[in-house]
Write a protein that binds this DNA or RNA. Structure first.
Lengths: 209, 209
DNA sequence: TGTACATCAGTGAACGCGCGTTCACTGATGTAC
DNA sequence: TGTACATCAGTGAACGCGCGTTCACTGATGTAC
């Protein structure tokens, strides 16, 4: 058994993180329902009871997975947002793409965050992190709205809600390989074209562009 | 014990349907995870074993609930579609509203259909019914696209996918009372405004309307 | 440097629980004569 | 109409299972002297 660069702590080394990763792998594989504490423990090569040294219980473990997911999520969105600057339009489009990219690259996290039935207010840290992620979208929307004349300027929070809903819908319906439901188009194209049409509807892209 | 209009069959009368309804109530109340065969049986006033007279097992029961949901769903969409005629624009908008109305009025069905992890191809009837529902949306999109000049006419299936994704996203994120996540706007307004902006982006509504 | 002690991560056995599922049964309903 | 029989919906006891959780424990690691 190769231990790697001798980084182990007491016994396992870093059981806490190993459990989170086992949980994510299970969620990814079998959905939020298919994850059990015992199985996660087994996957980490440890007795179920050992889990209680690190988490108060099953829900705590999922919450930690979601927490880590939101952290990466917010980072990715922020990075995409910055990359689009100084154009608010490019920022918002990049942010949308980053949303989908996250869901594809971290499906376990995505499920833990949005489909596990975790209550956001169970944990202030979770609420803060999810707020931060959504905040990026809102900031992009606010800047975008500033480009429109005030009289035809919808509320920025509504716009960010639209983008979020569209992104989430594309992920849920077309991105994950729902058995028996075939996507007519690649989800990336679907989201990109959808956002494009939407932004044109806001008057931010030329009608003939 | 009042039996009502004496419609009961052998013992229970109509256990099959009673089980479906108990399952829906449980799903509605506690999510797709929170539903167990035993609890549904108890809610219907019957022994767990009795379920097997009517369904092959737990999954069969959920599938039946989803099947009934899709039936109502397709009917509602179709009705809304017809109501909007002969204007394709009005048809599509009404169909979108009907989508949300269904999710609100039949939350248990909606969850069984879209969040229970039921495989659509497990059951040809289920595939047929879900196809019929989606078909209404596609038909509306096809007619709508016919109003556009061919050179600026996106694929109808893409348009219907956009509408579907936006509707589903609004339902999942803002319609159901996800604890700790407060909706900034009523979901109906959110969907209506979103679809409106989108249709304007397609060039189907006047920019200044 | 070596020894004694404190810490605490993980063990393993045990628990009560509710689950889905099976089975032989019983008794109400429907039907043939 | 009445009786004998067939049907079959629902019972109740039993099963094996894996779950989450608890507990006293053990033994590897870290620390004080």
């Amino acid at each position: 058994m190769v231990t790697g660069p001798k980084k182990r702590g007491y016994h396992h080394g870093n059981l806490r993180q190993a459990l989170v990763e086992a949980a994510l792998a299970l969620i990814e594989e079998k959905g939020p329902t298919g994850f059990t504490l015992s199985e996660a423990a087994k996957a980490a090569g440890v007795t179920p009871a050992a889990v209680y040294r690190h988490f108060a219980g099953r829900d705590e473990l999922i919450a930690e997975a979601a927490r880590q997911g939101f952290e990466v999520f917010a980072d990715l969105l922020e990075h995409a947002y910055e990359k689009g600057r100084p154009s608010p339009l490019a920022s918002l489009e990049a942010t949308g793409r980053a949303y989908l990219a996250f869901a594809r690259r971290f499906p376990g996290h995505y499920v833990a965050m949005f489909e596990s039935g975790i209550a956001m207010n169970r944990d202030p840290e979770l609420a803060r992190l999810s707020g931060r992620a959504l905040g990026v979208l809102e900031k992009a929307a606010v800047e975008l709205m500033a480009e429109l004349p005030p009289e035809k300027r919808p509320p920025a929070r509504m716009v960010s809600a639209h983008i979020w809903a569209l992104s989430h819908g594309v992920v849920e319906l077309f991105s994950r390989g729902a058995p028996g439901r075939k996507s007519p188009f690649p989800p990336e194209d679907l989201l990109e074209s959808g956002i494009g049409i939407y932004l044109r509807g806001l008057g931010l892209i030329r009608p003939d562009a």
